[in-house]
Nucleic acid binder design. Structure first.
Lengths: 339, 339
DNA sequence: ACTGGCACTCGGGTTCGGGGAGTGCCAATG
DNA sequence: CATTGGCACTCCCCGAACCCGAGTGCCAGT
């Protein structure tokens, strides 16, 4: 049904529309691309493409714009991811090298991605459950309050206060600390439950409840319900430069402030090194039905620590955006592996 | 020059303009407020007010809108801070009570403030230098890397990795940890420098450089250069609901993503329990010359930990916004004191 | 199968002209 | 002297009418 030339026409339409932001007509198309045929022929092809639902007219006697389905075909078949230029690669590298700690790495990454793509960037902090334990610290805050601190191999520090009837004395606490550490250090957080479940057995009966409280809080709050944080940058890019702007970006801004929404957007990324592109209505949220999301995962080696991505209008530069997302994810992975 | 009635006219103009968002004329004014005089009289008063620079006309034969100077007079003399209703107070209270840790407190606060004022809210994390030390922890990461963790009385945890030629063994480290803690626990961070400067003297000559490295990093990165973080919420409120919107909010959005700008905006707040209002051009940034900022500081008791505030258009509901900012700061202070 | 030609459509920009809200000024008035 | 009613004037806003041009669909010709 769709021969080679019709696909070329679709590709040209997408490319022109992304650049000019205006419906593209048959005449303009043959002028800008050397398709080797006349505008009348292109018109026939366009009619066929519209018939199949790949393009649409905003109104009669206007040019065509791609539909979500058209973008989908474009992304799947008609283009290749654009690699970063040498200058861009150098910029990414030097910009990320300077980071001093994990927070800084994530912040720099999200700003960088926003700048490269000129869109809204979203980066999830490395997920706890996939990282391993480096150290657990117990600190007495008062006679009834204990602070548990967890340090992971990604440099992340999680904290949690426990209220208890009576905090154990230094000796006992030191013992608990030692046993807890020898049990879980080096292990993945997801394995922690099995490793500590018998920990209290080693203690005298009257001490067991205390130990169990600590272990329980440790597991519940630090391991199983890590508040998965995300960083956002480039929201100003939602507002086009010269242009007037719809009020329709309000719901988008609202959605971008909701951690839950962001996590869901990022959350369904697939295997590492694969890019996920969700176009328009393919998004899980109606507010983002005129937006596209490009995500991927990152992490040292083949391990997947978390996800990152970009949110922009369906009319976006897919090859460039995909290239930037992939490149940033790779560099971020490398940085994390080095730490 | 400005008698009682002229001030009443100015007040009425501000109130009406804030509500309707449209230039207000003499006729509409006498209809909505019972000033007891005719529109002709009001016109004369308006001419006087314009002469003095408190109001202006967008163009001839249009109504008047307040100037920055007009808002300034309104805020200083013509109105009182609007207290929160009982229902609002209850909402604030219950919403903030539920927080589980410091991050949560700040996040809830900033969202609450954005919701109450329907504007952009900014909350600074409690500043380190004004809080006191609760515990210092030293953790061995590898043979050459040491992690310093600082816990403050506000529940904040700061971390920093130190690269060193050789990390001290457990015994020595335990000793350093004990001395460091006994030196600084309970002290303000601003006093820490004096308290630890002679710490290395107690050690053997060959151990002194190691201790000094740790102390130096501790001071430099944790005490003197805390990265002062801020939380922002409600950026979607920059976009009015029904209305079309200028592209002029782009620089505002950009500014709101810059930590430095936000800190500067918040940074110059005065004594606790005092509200600072900066109107239009009074702001230190040209990008925000059509915005007003209402800030105050917070902290348990009379202590000032950090600042919070609201950014909105110069045409904002000052009494209501000021009331909300004051109320939220008070509740936040109370929460922090309780912890 | 492609192309040139042609009639047709429709959105966007421009022009034009009332209607209306608002102003400034002035003479009259308590 | 402050206040008021009246009046002429000024613009902005809005809708109607209009034209222009880009774009389309179709068809006959190569």
């Amino acid at each position: 049904m769709l021969d080679e030339r019709k696909l070329a026409v679709l590709r040209a339409i997408v490319e022109d529309y992304v650049q000019t932001e205006e419906p593209v007509g048959s005449k303009a198309l043959v002028d800008r691309h050397n398709l080797g045929v006349s505008s009348a022929t292109v018109r026939n092809d366009m009619a066929a493409l519209e018939e199949e639902g790949y393009i649409a007219q905003p109104h009669t006697s206007a040019g065509r714009i791609p539909t979500d389905k058209g973008y989908r075909l474009f992304v799947d078949k008609l283009t290749t991811i654009k690699p970063m230029s040498a200058a861009e690669r150098r910029a990414i590298s030097t910009f990320l090298e300077g980071a001093v700690d994990l927070d800084d790495v994530v912040n720099r990454t999200v700003r960088l991605l926003a700048q490269l793509t000129r869109q809204v960037a979203v980066v999830q902090y490395p997920t706890l459950t996939r990282s391993t334990v480096r150290h657990v610290e117990l600190v007495i805050l008062s006679t009834t309050r204990l602070l548990i601190i967890l340090i992971t191999n990604t440099g992340r520090v999680e904290q949690r206060v426990v209220d208890m009837a009576k905090v154990p004395d230094d000796t006992l606490l030191g013992d608990i600390r030692a046993r807890l550490n020898s049990a879980v250090v080096g292990a993945k957080l997801s394995e922690a439950r099995d490793l500590v479940k018998d920990l209290s057995k080693a203690y005298a009966p009257e001490e067991q409840p205390i130990v169990e409280t600590i272990v329980k809080t440790f597991l519940e709050t630090l391991v199983e319900h890590p508040d998965e944080r995300v960083a956002v940058a480039g929201t100003a890019n939602l507002i086009p430069v010269g242009h007037e702007v719809h009020a329709s970006i309000r719901p988008v801004l609202e959605a971008l402030e909701e951690q839950v929404v962001l996590l869901k957007l990022l959350g369904e990324a697939t295997a590492p090194a694969r890019l996920t592109v969700r176009i328009g209505h393919e998004n899980p949220y109606a507010e983002l039905s005129s937006a596209s999301v490009v995500t991927t995962s990152y992490g040292p080696g083949d391990e997947t620590l978390a996800n990152l991505g970009v949110v922009g209008p369906t009319r976006m530069d897919y090859p460039g955006t995909m290239g930037a997302v992939r490149a940033v994810a790779r560099y971020l992975s490398r940085i994390l592996a080095g730490q």
